[in-house]
């Protein structure tokens, strides 16, 4: 690191070197892929996509839905009242209850899924997004229940469902109950299929285990953001099992496309338009109008000079 940097923000950068992906509360963020320094307001305006290398950096669930859904529409949150309950009184090195309240405090969410009813380019839709920062976006009883309530609304109103997943899998602290959420969400999606209502699964970095092996792979269309890491078993577990080095690009979106697991890779900037057009075709609607409402608020253009290394 240059001495210039050290002078203006010493602590921040040094801790960043260890944590790699986050610069807490700073105005600058380091891209986890190209290590470029990114000015936060600019990054935010660019939908958390690195302006230098195009890496799709993880994005908060609520922000995800905000940039996906039409802005003029009054989007309505679904099942916002659901709160996790520690039925098993689970305790490892820390109490599950403590982990929950810390996650709630740091994310502002009650659990790892946010669900909204709204529209995308005028096409009515229910959209749900996983909050990866909430215990790794893990699926427990609340995530499963919220997902099913979102499906129920879709079934009631004949409205398609779009899910942005970002999850390490089932939530171990809810033990068997979390495993059962795989069956629960899959059962609900099967009813969507029976009723001919589209479900689009958007896989964003990362999706593994119980979420990948249930709702994640059950889309009528499975779409991934570029370079997202998606699989059943994590790379470390596979490496330990097969005792060989994993091939370059293993379990990335491009790998999934090549192996037939997903329909397409879509850039975050094009997500609204692509999905709106797909849904309109599947539901025999007129082609959506030009996207004038991107749901993204304006951020002033005065980006300061970036620090150079």
């Amino acid at each position: 690191m240059s001495s210039w940097l050290d002078r203006i923000m010493p602590g921040m950068i040094r801790s960043d070197a260890q944590q790699r992906s986050t610069v807490p509360e700073g105005l600058w963020k380091k891209c986890p892929k190209c290590s470029g320094f990114l000015y936060r307001p600019e990054l935010d305006r660019n939908l958390n996509v690195c302006p230098k290398c195009d890496h799709h950096i993880r994005i908060a669930a609520r922000r995800r839905l905000e940039i996906f859904l039409d802005k003029d529409e009054d989007s309505r949150e679904i099942a916002a009242e659901l709160e996790p309950v520690d039925r098993l009184k689970f305790k490892d090195t820390r109490r599950y209850k403590e982990r929950l309240s810390q996650a709630q405090k740091s994310t502002g969410e009650k659990d790892a899924l946010v669900a909204m009813a709204g529209s995308v380019q005028g096409v009515p839709v229910v959209a749900v997004a996983f909050e990866f920062k909430f215990l790794g976006g893990s699926m427990g009883a609340v995530v499963g229940e919220k997902f099913v309530r979102a499906v129920n609304l879709c079934l009631e109103q004949g409205v398609p469902l779009v899910c942005f997943s970002a999850s390490g899998g089932a939530r171990m602290q809810e033990a068997i109950v979390s495993l059962m959420q795989m069956a629960k969400t899959s059962a609900a999606l099967q009813r969507m299929r029976e009723n001919g209502i589209p479900f689009i699964s958007v896989l964003t970095d990362p999706v593994f285990g119980g979420v990948s092996a249930s709702l994640g792979m059950l889309g009528d269309l499975n779409i991934a953001e570029p370079y997202a890491l998606v699989g059943f078993a994590g790379p470390r577990v596979i490496e330990q099992t097969v005792r060989e080095k994993l091939p370059e690009g293993f379990q990335r979106s491009e790998f999934l496309l090549e192996h037939g697991a997903i329909d397409m890779i879509v850039d975050r900037h094009d997500m609204r338009e692509r999905i709106a057009h797909i849904l309109a075709k599947l539901q025999h609607r007129a082609e959506p109008a030009l996207d004038e409402d991107s749901g993204i608020e304006d951020v002033p253009d005065d980006v300061p000079e970036e620090p150079t290394a």
Partner: peptide, 24 residues
Amino acid sequence: YPGIGAEERGQSEAIANNLALMSR
């Protein structure tokens, strides 16, 4: 099985599909 070939051939999809199928 957590293996390379299993991932290439869609372990997640195979499991997910069974869950959906069996549910109905």
